[in-house]
């Protein structure tokens, strides 16, 4: 966890994203115009959020298997990072939609799914806080997060494809790859996704370390 190379990589990738994302050439499309750059900052948020959630679920399963509180810390903090990315994703998407689709919020299945996903994970946080015993809390919230993930995946991957959506890849629109995602966009987009995910992991590890130190301090105070 203390290795530094990936933190350097994260900074480098994000610096590249910021500079190339704002300055590099992008395809000129009607309506979208320069806002196509939102791809690097808005769409990348969702990819990072899903990555964080998936890692969080892996740690939840690990906790249920061997009951170590360390795994619970990891799963909680990864979920927290995912929530952060989700909130930023909704905020940026909403701003972008105002200037391209004409409203801050449209009745689009993907938007609704994202909002519902956030509701699920806010509920997860409330559930955590309502339990007092730490082992009980860890176990029950692990169960709920796995359950919610199982419901969240069909919600964002299957349902939007059954109905019409303004997003690419839905309701008969061409999929993400067949879309006009040309190589100019790709060379910034993929590094951006990796960069944001690494940043999320970095934030998570710091918070996990803080949480563990806090627990150590508490134990010391009790044992005095």
């Amino acid at each position: 966890m203390k290795a530094t190379w990936w933190k350097v990589l994260a900074i480098a990738l994000l610096a590249y994203t910021l500079i190339a994302g704002l300055l590099a050439d992008v395809p000129r499309l009607p309506i979208l115009n320069e806002t196509i750059r939102a791809l690097y900052f808005h769409v990348a948020m969702w990819f990072a959020m899903l990555a964080m959630l998936t890692v969080g679920i892996v740690y939840s399963i690990k906790y249920l298997r061997n009951g170590r509180l360390e795994d619970d810390d990891m799963s909680l903090e990864f979920t927290n990072a995912a929530i952060l990315f989700g909130v930023i994703g909704i905020a940026t998407g909403s701003l972008w939609a105002r200037f391209t689709w004409g409203a801050y919020w449209t009745n689009d299945p993907k938007l609704n799914a994202a909002a519902i996903g956030l509701l699920m994970y806010f509920a997860y946080l409330i559930l955590r806080n309502s339990l007092t015993d730490i082992f009980q809390r860890a176990k029950i919230s692990a169960v709920y997060s796995i359950f919610a993930y199982a419901a969240f995946i069909p919600l964002i991957f299957i349902l939007p494809r059954l109905t019409d959506s303004l997003h690419p890849g839905n309701g008969g629109n061409p999929g993400f790859n067949a879309y006009d995602m040309d190589s100019q966009l790709r060379i910034v987009f993929y590094p951006a996704v990796i960069g944001w995910s690494l940043l999320g992991t970095w934030v998570t590890t710091i918070r996990v370390r803080y949480r563990r130190l806090e627990r150590k301090m508490e134990e010391k105070m009790i044992n005095q």
């Binding site: 519902i116 509701l119 509920a123 919610a148």
Partner: peptide, 12 residues
């Protein structure tokens, strides 16, 4: 708690 935990999961 019952409502907030179940509503988002029931939505699909």
């Amino acid at each position: 708690l019952m409502a907030i935990l179940s509503f988002p999961i029931l939505i699909p």
